Amino acid sequence: MTRFTQAELEAARDRLVPDVVAGGLRVLFCGINPGLMTAATGHHFARPGNRFWPVLHLSGFTPRLLKPAEQGELLSYGLGITNVVARASARADELTAEEYREGGRLLREKVVRLAPRWLAVVGVTAYRVAFDDRRAQVGPQERVIGGTRVWVLPNPSGLNAVTTTPRP
């Protein structure tokens, strides 16, 4: 894995990271926003310690543990990745409520256009703000976007120590 200096990571602030999407996916995973490591590498969930890739494999979505640089392989499994807020930041708490709400609006449009079977939002707090659903809990939601069902997952970031995840 490439090592970045703090200055290189800071230079990635506000960068946009392209989605990994296609129409008709089984599951479209939606992160909160790209972190600086993700923006610096161009690969989603790239920070070491982020549990997204190990959990994706342990949950049976992929036949092997993928590296962030292999994110393009997700499409062959009917999976994709996007974010609620497109701009990169060091921490999700740097985002404003307005950014979350606008991101939720744009995400709904994207989901209607791409029509995945499921939208899996990683981060219940982000989901609550983006979709104005203060009582949402982790798990399946009553909300349907077009024909897409919604499931909220715990945030896989290593910064989120609330939920423990087994390591492979």
Score class of each variant (00 low, 15 high):
residue 109 E to M: 09
residue 57 H to P: 04
residue 67 K to L: 08
residue 121 V to I: 11
residue 16 L to H: 11
residue 134 R to G: 13
residue 59 S to W: 08
residue 104 G to Y: 01
residue 153 L to W: 13
residue 86 A to Y: 14
residue 167 R to V: 15
residue 40 A to T: 06
residue 91 R to P: 07
residue 48 P to G: 11
residue 35 G to S: 00
residue 98 E to I: 14
residue 51 R to A: 12
residue 9 L to N: 11
residue 75 L to F: 10
residue 52 F to V: 10
residue 47 R to S: 07
residue 166 P to I: 05
residue 21 V to L: 11
residue 26 R to Y: 12
residue 60 G to W: 00
residue 88 A to N: 04
residue 127 Y to D: 07
residue 134 R to N: 02
residue 120 A to D: 12
residue 56 L to D: 01
residue 114 L to E: 13
residue 132 D to F: 10
residue 160 N to Q: 05
residue 72 G to P: 03
residue 96 T to M: 15
residue 65 L to T: 05
residue 102 E to T: 10
residue 138 V to S: 12
residue 28 L to S: 14
residue 142 E to K: 14
residue 123 G to N: 05
residue 1 M to F: 09
residue 58 L to Q: 02
residue 55 V to Q: 06
residue 102 E to Q: 07
residue 130 A to W: 09
residue 63 P to M: 05
residue 104 G to L: 01
residue 112 V to A: 13
residue 158 G to D: 11
residue 47 R to V: 04
residue 102 E to M: 07
residue 81 I to V: 06
residue 79 L to Q: 12
residue 65 L to A: 03
residue 142 E to V: 14
residue 130 A to L: 04
residue 146 G to A: 08
residue 112 V to F: 06
residue 112 V to W: 07
residue 115 A to F: 10
residue 51 R to H: 15
residue 75 L to M: 11
residue 126 A to P: 04
residue 106 L to F: 01
residue 18 P to K: 03
residue 55 V to L: 08
residue 57 H to N: 02
residue 21 V to R: 09
residue 74 L to C: 11
residue 49 G to W: 15
residue 126 A to D: 00
residue 80 G to A: 14
residue 83 N to V: 02
residue 150 V to D: 10
residue 101 R to C: 06
residue 101 R to Y: 00
residue 88 A to I: 02
residue 83 N to M: 00
residue 73 E to I: 04
residue 133 D to G: 06
residue 4 F to V: 01
residue 135 R to I: 08
residue 56 L to R: 02
residue 121 V to C: 06
residue 122 V to I: 06
residue 121 V to F: 05
residue 85 V to C: 05
residue 56 L to T: 04
residue 52 F to E: 08
residue 41 T to G: 03
residue 148 T to L: 11
residue 7 A to M: 14
residue 59 S to E: 07
residue 149 R to K: 12
residue 91 R to G: 08
residue 52 F to Y: 09
residue 162 V to S: 02
residue 36 L to M: 08
residue 140 P to T: 12
residue 151 W to T: 09
residue 86 A to K: 15
residue 110 K to G: 05
residue 80 G to W: 15
residue 116 P to L: 13
residue 92 A to E: 10
residue 15 R to V: 08
residue 89 S to V: 09
residue 50 N to F: 04
residue 41 T to V: 00
residue 60 G to N: 00
residue 13 R to L: 08
residue 31 G to A: 01
residue 68 P to H: 07
residue 61 F to C: 13
residue 53 W to Q: 00
residue 126 A to F: 01
residue 13 R to V: 11
residue 33 N to I: 04
residue 21 V to E: 08
residue 85 V to Y: 01
residue 148 T to Q: 11
residue 31 G to L: 01
residue 129 V to G: 06
residue 12 A to L: 14
residue 102 E to Y: 09
residue 158 G to C: 10
residue 35 G to L: 01
residue 107 L to T: 10
residue 50 N to G: 04
residue 25 L to M: 15
residue 137 Q to P: 04
residue 88 A to Q: 01
residue 105 R to K: 06
residue 21 V to C: 12
residue 166 P to E: 09
residue 165 T to D: 10
residue 40 A to L: 12
residue 116 P to G: 14
residue 147 G to R: 08
residue 155 N to S: 01
residue 5 T to I: 13
residue 35 G to N: 08
residue 134 R to W: 06
residue 145 I to P: 14
residue 25 L to V: 13
residue 139 G to Y: 14
residue 28 L to D: 15
residue 21 V to P: 12
residue 77 Y to N: 15
